[in-house]
Design a protein around this nucleic acid. Structure first.
Lengths: 296, 296
DNA sequence: GCCAGTTCATACGTTTACGTATACCAAAAC
DNA sequence: GTTTTGGTATACGTAAACGTATGAACTGGC
């Protein structure tokens, strides 16, 4: 390594990375558990070392310069490597204690992750589980979460994934809703059914059409961004919607609709970072989650 | 980025990298232009943060632990990214001043790099050229040099290379040596000729055999690790040896031997890092070197 | 239009990390 | 055997970086 040319402060690079990610000095300070003047100083110091302006400052925030954008790519790679360092170091710790974070769709969090936590409370009492129920996919590569439950096969080579099941989902409605609109469970009628569904129904309509079910866009009267909210809407008898069969079977009042429509099947993947997979505490949680999901 | 988990000091990682590369805290301190207590502290701090011992200390030096070795891989990648940051930042500087380092076999340094320097002295007076004449190939990726003259096509994708010539090399000896051993220039006799050659002649003998010249290993009485030293030995009339024709033709007393042996041909590549190729000052030197080498 | 909640910039006292100096140890050179 | 030359560890005064406090400017809700 030619340290003559690489003579800038690496912590200042870290400040730059956090600032770029958070969009402000103050935000970076919060993320790094430090103060805004420190971040401001560090970024200014890096700008001096590299002899380039990284951000244009204004009273209402920052804008990255062209130079900053070009450097950002490599700065992010530095951050990725730093992330891997912390993960590999985790590996050396054989104690099953501390925190493990899990991300999944909220309905799964409620049912299966809760079940996993219950079991771990006995077998690994020192463990704290952080649940990140998120609609958008969390970035495992940068360690936003340790373990994820996903329904598509991960493509990144740095992740290890295990297929723990192939589940199915069907249309359901609460008995009270059927009574209300006067629909018989075995009826194929779907003209006047209101659908509780995703906020962007276009793609969803296509999937249904492939299965012989033609829905109109105006039937999607209750778009929900959260699957858990959608589930509660179903239970409240406000319409019909798609639910995983394993979840619906726990609700005695849920009635499956349109038996002629074949269920939608989807895989269930348990995913973690390859560096973390050898960590004892991650492994323990991973294995329990696998067990719980396979039992479903 | 999850800064909760990546909570170590990045400068301490830099200290670890330098220590691992240099093999000692003191060496790392010299490389980073700081002091040994600082490096010792920083590495100790990293060991605390990562909760792993990185080096086993003894009074006569260090030995990296298994944990250190496993982490080193990612630490090095962090260093590579840091290196790229400095290179990209160079790019923004449009002034043709400062330092540019060139690495090449020493004979080429003497003849062509010197010629390039002479031209640059007029066109770019603010420039300082550092010449790294090295037998082993310098690591351009980590910026041990900015520009290299090589005789094999570089394989690394992060390097840009330009073919500036296809040169030939033949056997030469000084007139005085021929007089001494009584060899006629057009003679095919090579039984009693002493060869000034590489320190490891086995591979070299194979190449000669392929060209119809059978040399014995005991003829290599003057192995040289430096091409420049070998050249001076030739000039001093101590034996025969292979020299690039473009270099030999500047020596009026050099006589080409064994015309029946076809010349060895080899490519001449001018190489730099892809990130550096857009830097103004690097570009200026690169272009002059290209010009000089193509004229040869 | 005003006020609460942002943002970045700046001044100043305190803490932290650095460099100097030195002790100590082991292997190589004399 | 002694000296030289490498290395790490530790103590302590100094200098650099940090956090607190505060100011100025802009946004958005009321």
């Amino acid at each position: 390594m030619n340290w003559q040319e690489v003579n800038f402060d690496w912590n200042q690079v870290r400040a730059f990375l956090a600032t770029a990610e958070e969009g402000s000095f103050s935000g970076a300070a919060r993320a790094l558990s430090t103060t805004q003047p420190t971040i401001t100083r560090q970024v200014a110091g890096l700008e001096t070392s590299l002899n380039s302006l990284l951000f244009e400052r204004s009273t209402r925030g920052l804008r990255m310069t062209l130079a900053g954008q070009q450097l950002f790519e490599h700065v992010r790679e530095m951050g990725s490597a730093a992330s891997r360092i912390s993960m590999v170091a985790q590996t050396f710790n054989n104690e099953v204690s501390g925190e493990v974070s899990i991300t999944a769709v909220d309905t799964l969090c409620v049912k299966f992750v809760a079940q996993a936590i219950r079991r771990l409370k006995h077998s690994a009492p020192g463990l704290t589980l952080r649940i990140i129920s998120s609609v958008q996919i969390q970035d495992l590569k940068h360690r936003d979460a340790d373990i994820a439950i996903r329904h598509v096969r991960p493509t990144q080579s740095s992740l290890v994934a295990k297929l723990v099941g192939n589940w199915t989902a069907s249309f359901y409605a609460h008995q009270s809703y059927l009574d209300q609109i006067g629909l018989r469970p075995d009826s194929a009628d779907h003209e006047n059914v209101e659908i509780i569904g995703p906020s962007d129904p276009v793609q969803f309509i296509e999937i249904c059409k492939g299965r012989g079910l033609n829905l109109r866009i105006d039937q999607f009267t209750l778009p929900c961004t959260s699957a858990l909210v959608a589930h509660e809407m179903l239970r409240a008898g406000l319409g019909a919607g798609v639910t995983a069969d394993v979840i619906a079977k726990a609700e005695p009042e849920f009635v499956r609709l349109w038996p002629h429509v074949p269920p939608i099947d989807f895989p269930v993947w348990l995913v973690t970072h390859q560096e973390l997979h050898t960590s004892k505490k991650i492994r323990v949680v991973f294995d329990v989650l696998e067990q719980v999901l396979k039992e479903a």
